[in-house]
Simulated scan of single mutants.
Amino acid sequence: MKNIKSHFVFTKQQRNGILSLLSLIVILQLVYFFVDFPRKEIDFDNENLEKFQKEIDSLKVVEIEKRQPKIFPFNPNFITDYKGYTLGMSNEEIDRLLHFREQGKWINSKEEFQQVTMVSDSLLNTMAPYFKFPDWVMNTSEAKPKSIKVNPPLTKIDLNKASQEDLRKVNGIGEVLSKRIVDYRKTLSSGFISMVQLQEVYGLSPEVIERMSERFFVKEPENLIKVKLNTASRDELVTIKYIDYEIAHKIIEERTLREGFKSLEELTKVKDFPVHRFEIIKLYLTLN
């Protein structure tokens, strides 16, 4: 007990030291709360800062424009499946145009193009500036010629039945590329179901694919069974190329949160979803 008590016994000098320390602490606290210390203002050059921000924004705009695919003037009468797809047209809109052209009819204005294809006003406004009609259409003072010499259309071949020799008839496809196309076709259980899949073949440029669309067509197989996105299990989802078990799990989580997907495009909101492969993946999906 004496040992414990000794720890709480201080000499006069120690007591004075403790009192001084406590007084100093109290004084510093009072100074901190009641004394307004001058703050050093940091001057910003707002004008230069604004110029710098504008320069960054302009560089971002330039970079975005560079990434956009270039569109050159074209005659809408000769839009192929692939061309229409890259322009943003749906399969139904492209089919309406092709059916109209199969009757030997011609589109001579953007208004007529919309009537035939039934594209939306917004899509028409993005496409119409690139429409290029023959001179006799643009010059209304000249009478429409009675006959127009048009090269007879090529007989299209089913891409799933095309040989390497058939493929090499397209300008830009040689022995190497024709073999790659055939080899890639062999990896597809149902063969090609869309011309879009040609983007998967290494070395094929968009220009060559567009030329291929003039000679070949792809008909979706009748026995193709698509995966139902809103009811599919994880094991069913992983049967689709580019979807692994981790992505499938995240798709199901997102589906639960949304109480079902309203459109296939909502898949792009799933975390870590391979957005750059979306156009290929959606070929094998249906909502319900």
Rank of each mutant, 00 (worst) to 15 (best):
F100N: 00
I25A: 13
D43I: 14
P206G: 02
D45W: 05
L283K: 01
W106R: 09
L154D: 12
I157M: 05
D235W: 08
F52W: 14
D36N: 14
K54S: 13
V35K: 07
P206L: 03
N230C: 05
K40F: 07
E246G: 05
N223A: 11
D36K: 13
Y184S: 05
K262T: 10
P153V: 14
L154T: 14
M89G: 01
V61L: 13
M118A: 14
K226R: 15
I94M: 03
R258S: 08
K269M: 12
I243Y: 03
H249K: 15
F78Q: 11
M127V: 03
T117V: 05
P134W: 02
S163I: 05
G174T: 04
S233D: 10
F72T: 14
E200Q: 12
L123G: 01
I252H: 01
I27S: 10
E41A: 11
K179F: 07
E65D: 14
N46Y: 10
S163Y: 04
L154N: 13
N3R: 13
N3H: 11
I209K: 01
K269N: 13
M195Q: 01
T140A: 10
Y32K: 12
S90N: 04
P221M: 06
E112A: 04
E63N: 12
N125L: 12
G88L: 05
D43C: 10
Q13N: 15
V61Q: 13
Y245V: 09
G17V: 09
E93W: 02
F74Y: 07
M212P: 01
T256F: 09
K262D: 11
V208G: 04
R15M: 15
K54T: 09
K110M: 08
L267Y: 01
K83R: 13
V137G: 04
E210F: 02
E142K: 13
E200S: 07
Q103R: 13
L28M: 15
F33C: 09
L204Q: 00
E175V: 06
E220G: 02
G104A: 07
M118I: 12
Y245P: 00
K282S: 03
V61I: 15
N75Q: 08
S109M: 04
I243V: 07
E175Q: 07
L124S: 00
Q103P: 00
F261H: 01
V238E: 00
G84T: 00
F8P: 05
I107M: 03
S189E: 14
N171H: 13
Q14D: 09
L97H: 02
Q164L: 07
Q29M: 15
Q103T: 10
A143N: 12
L177T: 02
N77W: 06
R258M: 09
R67T: 10
F33I: 10
L177H: 00
M118S: 13
K83P: 02
I27E: 08
N139A: 07
S178V: 06
V35D: 08
I25R: 08
N48K: 15
Q197D: 06
Y245K: 14
W136L: 07
R255T: 02
S120A: 09
F113I: 00
V275D: 08
L198C: 00
S194V: 02
D121A: 11
I157L: 11
N160R: 04
L287K: 04
